[in-house]
Structure formats: C-alpha cells, structure tokens
Write a protein that binds this DNA or RNA. Structure first.
Length: 271
DNA sequence: ACATTGACCTGGGAGC
DNA sequence: TGCTCCCAGGTCAATG
C-alpha cells in the first residue's frame, strides 16, 4: 500500500539498524511474490555487508558488498526490524538475520511485493531504466512538468501515477495533490497551463513532505519498521472522503473511477 | 509511442 | 454465522 512517503519512512527508520551490518542467513518461506524471489538468494547474500540503504521510486535498495537487494512493498508489504525473538505471523515470508542477532522480517499478505537480487548497474536493470523523475528532486519543476505533459492526452491523474513519468505517487497522493492544486483529475495532461503545472508541482512536493513529516499514511496496517503507524490519514483532504463536504467550499465531494481506481475530488474547486 | 485494460493475491467489510 | 461481492496504498504485460 505504500507510496513514496511510506517507503521513505521505512527507509529512514531502517538505516541505523542495517547499514554496516553483515547478513548471517536468510529464511524464505514463500518464494512466490510478484516475481519469484531470485533463485539462490540465500547463498548470494550470506556474509555480505549492507553498505547503504536508499529509495528509488517505491523501491528500497540495499547496496551490498557485491550486489544490490531490490525490495518493493507492493500493496501490502511491510518490513520490520526485531531485536528480540518474535512470534511468526501469517504472511511473514522472508527473514533476514543479521550477524548482530537482529532480524529484518518481510511480511506481505497480498504478495504483490518483490525481492530481487542484481549485480548489474541499476541504470541497465529492466525495472529501473525507464523510471521517471523523483518528485522531491530539485529538477522536478513546473517548467519540467509543463514540457512533459505537452504530448499527453491522458488524464492528469493517470499521468501523475505513471512511474515512467514520475515515481512514487500513487492513488492517495495523486488525489490529494490535485485537490490542493485545484485541478480536475480528468483534465487532459496537455491542457495544463504553465501556471497549473507550477501549482501542481508545488502541491505534490507539499503533500509528500507533509506526509513524510507524519510518518506516512496508515489505513490498515502500514507501519514503519519499528512497528509504529503513520498518522497522515488524519490530514487527508479528499482521499476516502467521498460524500463528505469539501473543506474549501462545502460542496459534497464526488467519487469517480479512473483506470479502476477510486478518485475523489471537488467538482466545484477542481477545474 | 501512447492509452487503456486485465492480471497477479489475500483480507476485510457490506449486504443478504 | 456464513456466503458472495466488492474494494484495497502497485505496476507489468498485453491489447488497441
């Protein structure tokens, strides 16, 4: 379920527990995630040191001595760090034991996540070579968005959620950003004015930073690796608020479906 | 090249 | 209680 703020929250919380630690061994109970876990991962990864942990889009990247462990949380994935023996729960698919005795445990009921190993440069990796821009990066500007949207007739919400164009924005934050920028989710991307593009980029950065500050959004079971939940769900302005009044104008918010995803917006405020 | 749809999986809630 | 249906924070592959 995680979007950029939840993945980044996970990444930040994990860093101090994993960087410079050495893998002792892996236990894989379920190989079948979105793709099968890379064959022989247990042997490949044992005794390797975790040199760094970073995020690209919604992927977590464990930079090891001789390769990179790529981990995606999918819709329902979670990574927990445990410093003492912890009871095994249903859907605890992978345990990564560190030499210091701590345990990094991957839990994912829907199994849409991924755990892959690569020894190649990420720029050439099929999952990474076509990824779009990081929305919190300096180079993501109104001018950039305006240029990129010119040839696109797709609705702006679909544009925002297309990871080949922009990474990290999913169904929650796309709706929130469009509401803040007062842009209709079905507006063709190419019809955005330069001003609207500026506003939208500002709104995206604002909502992602706010969510990050709140430790992400928790609906069912997102939690950071220490087991605490985010609280941005209390600050959502449109997501999940269909039939409730718009916080700007009081008109009832509207629910539509776009590409099979629920989309809530204010028909009066968002043009 | 771009846009849209189906598929992958489990669990929880609504409605009967 | 229990069944069925629908929905859920993602994204790749296949299809027009």
């Amino acid at each position: 379920m995680p979007e950029l703020p939840e993945v980044e929250t996970t990444c930040r919380a994990l860093k101090k527990y994993v960087i410079d630690q050495v893998i002792d061994h892996l236990i894989i109970r379920q190989h079948s995630l979105r793709w099968p876990i890379t064959a022989g991962l247990e042997q490949k990864i044992s005794d390797q040191k975790i040199l760094n942990l970073s995020r690209r889009g919604k992927y977590l990247l464990f930079q090891m001595s001789h390769g990179i462990l790529i981990l995606h949380l999918g819709m329902s994935g979670r990574l927990n760090i445990f410093t003492k023996k912890t009871e095994l729960k249903k859907h605890d698919h992978v345990d990564i034991y560190l030499k210091n005795g701590n345990l990094l445990r991957y839990h994912d009921p829907r199994r849409f996540g991924a755990i892959l190993w690569t020894e190649d440069a990420l720029e050439q990796h099929p999952l990474f070579k076509h990824l779009g821009i990081e929305p919190l990066s300096k180079s993501f500007t109104g001018a950039y968005l305006y240029t990129k949207t010119r040839a696109r007739s797709t609705p702006i919400k679909s544009f925002l959620m297309n990871s080949k164009l922009i990474v990290g924005i999913g169904n929650i934050y796309a709706q929130e950003a469009l509401f803040i920028a007062r842009i209709h989710p079905q507006k063709p991307a190419k019809n955005l004015s330069q001003q609207a593009a500026n506003d939208l980029v500002a709104a995206i950065k604002l909502v992602l930073r706010r969510a990050l500050k709140s430790g992400g959004t928790t609906f069912r079971d997102f939690q950071n690796p220490l087991g605490t939940t985010g609280y941005f769900q209390n600050k959502l302005q449109v997501y999940g608020r269909e039939t409730k009044p718009c916080i700007n104008c009081n008109k009832e918010l509207q629910l539509i479906r776009m590409n099979g995803r629920s989309t809530v917006f204010c028909a009066r405020c968002q043009k």
